[in-house]
Amino acid sequence: MLKVSNLSVVFDGITILDKISFTVPTGSTLAVVGPSGVGKSTLLHAICGLVRVSNGSVFVNETDISAIPAHKRGIGLVSQTGDLFPNMTVSQNIEFGLRIKHKTKADRTARVQELLEMINLSSLAHRNVMQLSGGEVRRIALARALAPEPRVLLLDEPFSGLDEATHEQLSKDVFQLLSDLSITSIIVTHEIIDAHRCDEVVTLKK
């Protein structure tokens, strides 16, 4: 379960987020919608621990993680552009979090293979990430975020900038995957159809 309580982010007197509170039950998906510039991405970064929070708390399974640095929170993030490491192959990107956890090579290989099959991209294991299409980048970024088995997964407009057919297919696949894995997740999206695929919807307003 993820609980955000009175979360505020203020920079130089400008309030980006003002006392945001919501709860995401374990295994369910929450959509966060709202106009551009309202602070949706900042909300995800604040939950991850990537930006400074002025007030409020973040709880994961009843534990207050507000003071815990980002790399120890166990919260995965799939950004808008994927942010794959350009100096690594597809496999190396996906196994990154597993190397950090000192998993054995055998375990890493098995997990990478498993995830590549989940996202239907097994043939791209050794591909240079600079050669991937937009849809493939999003899938690999998702696989990378899932590899270390995060407690919570955050997705920041994971389907933006894709053509309609790719968007539709990717959206279906991602939601199916999240459902199969029963992973607590938050998706920031502009698309109503994607918001309706989620269990709950939260609207941020200016």
């Binding site: 991850c48 990537l50 640095p69 980002a70 120890k72 950004s79 942010d83 190397r99 990378r144 590899a147």
Partner: peptide, 27 residues
């Protein structure tokens, strides 16, 4: 060096020194 790459590494569990070694240093 795109700082989002460092953010991605952090969300994957890499402490700052590992992020530097694995993500920043190659660049």
């Amino acid at each position: 060096v795109n700082h989002r790459l460092e953010h991605a590494a952090a969300t994957l569990g890499a402490r700052p020194s590992r992020t530097f070694t694995l993500v920043v240093w190659p660049h």
